[in-house]
Design a protein around this nucleic acid. Structure first.
Lengths: 212, 212
DNA sequence: TAGCTGTGTTACCGATCGGTAACTGCGCCG
DNA sequence: CGGCGCAGTTACCGATCGGTAACACAGCTA
């Protein structure tokens, strides 16, 4: 098999991108989750072994297994961590209090632009995990919950912005965004790079009630 | 690790879904590719071992390695097989000769409906493979070529149908479709199930020159 | 009949996988 | 000070991984 990343290479990437990062002196459990986040996202949950995670977290397998009962447990924690952060980001952008619905939408699209333009983008980590995990895996439920929740937030903000068909618009925006993220890693960057412009004109062209 | 599919279970699925299928008495190479297609798509290229592929193909590892130099070679052949068939399907639906561009588009959307409504849909096999394979893998090039080609065909048929912005429309349709397939396995079936209606009304609403 | 080619079979290799046992040692709190 | 809990370390387990060697046996052609 072509691992395409010698084990040594993995350890080097750890030293640079993690230590220089923030994992300096945190409790082991946090370090492990940080390492898992990096490695699972970059290389996939199946190709990365628990030992690689532990070493990248500057600890060892035994300590990892003191905090997570199994690798599957670690995967679930990894997925829950991502889902939680993404929901928090959504709350920060679309939550109550901050500006008009239009302003929230503009801020969210700016955020989408940041995500997509990020180099080293390998698509949505949660979607990637879902692809790798078979139907019975406990992490699947977490992923599906998150995606549903995200879709609901979109419906709500479209409704608050008085769009005439908020559900339909949310479906469309949701699918476009998901498609863009998966296309970034296999479809060439063409269509995905034009997503933001598409979103803006889609929202501008969709009919709204009232509109002040 | 939760394999969620005991090895025995895999072998049973082979006996039923493959033998009863068509692999009855074909040359070994074809049987192997058929088995790889089934197993790689259902469970992912990484979780399925070469031995499982060989046994499902009613042969053994040695014969597999006489036809494919390595597992990576088999993965490339698997991906090439899928890309080739998908391009053939596109040619059959959108190719020259058969009807007006509008008829071709209607036929293509019917085909999309079939794909999405198919139970046991696990998303686009090529996109899934791309998620599992890291950037250097030779199969990645095949996948990207296919996706680009598919996008180009969409542009061409939209141009032939005299849509005013064929590239933009192709981007949108492409991303929607990709998003729907990935969402089927992690986003709940909600947005994806409404894709076909979205496509039809999108095409109906998009401006065209001339229009007969 | 002899010989060749392709398939099946068994056994094996080193490496790595997920997971565990047992021990050392540090720091913290009484 | 004594003790306890947690982290680190080493060594190990059985299983499975991708990949190979050697041999038996079929079918075909000459």
């Amino acid at each position: 098999m072509s691992t395409a990343l010698d084990k040594d290479l993995r350890n080097f990437s750890k030293l640079r991108s993690e230590i220089s990062g923030s994992l300096a002196e945190k409790p082991p459990r946090e370090r492990i989750l940080l390492a898992a986040r990096e490695l699972f996202y970059r290389f996939g949950v199946h190709t990365v072994g628990v030992e690689a995670v532990a070493e990248t977290a500057l600890t060892n397998k035994m300590t990892l297994y003191r905090h997570f009962r199994s690798k599957d447990d670690l995967i679930v924690a990894y997925v829950e961590q991502l889902a939680g952060e993404n929901v928090a980001t959504l709350d920060r952008l679309l939550g109550e209090g901050l500006g008009t619905p239009q302003q929230k939408l503009a801020a969210w699209i700016d955020h989408v632009e940041d995500v997509l333009s990020n180099k080293s983008e390998r698509g949505c980590a949660l979607a990637n995990a879902a692809v790798e995990l078979d139907a019975g895996h406990p992490a699947r439920g977490v992923i599906e919950d998150y995606k549903r929740r995200k879709h609901d937030r979109l419906v709500n903000v479209f409704r608050a912005a008085r769009y005439r068909e908020p559900e339909r618009l949310a479906d469309e925006v949701f699918l476009l965004f998901e498609g863009a993220r998966i296309s970034l890693q296999c479809g060439g960057s063409g269509p995905a790079s034009r997503l933001v412009a598409m979103l803006r004109s889609l929202l501008a062209a969709s009919p709204r009630d009232d509109a002040r």
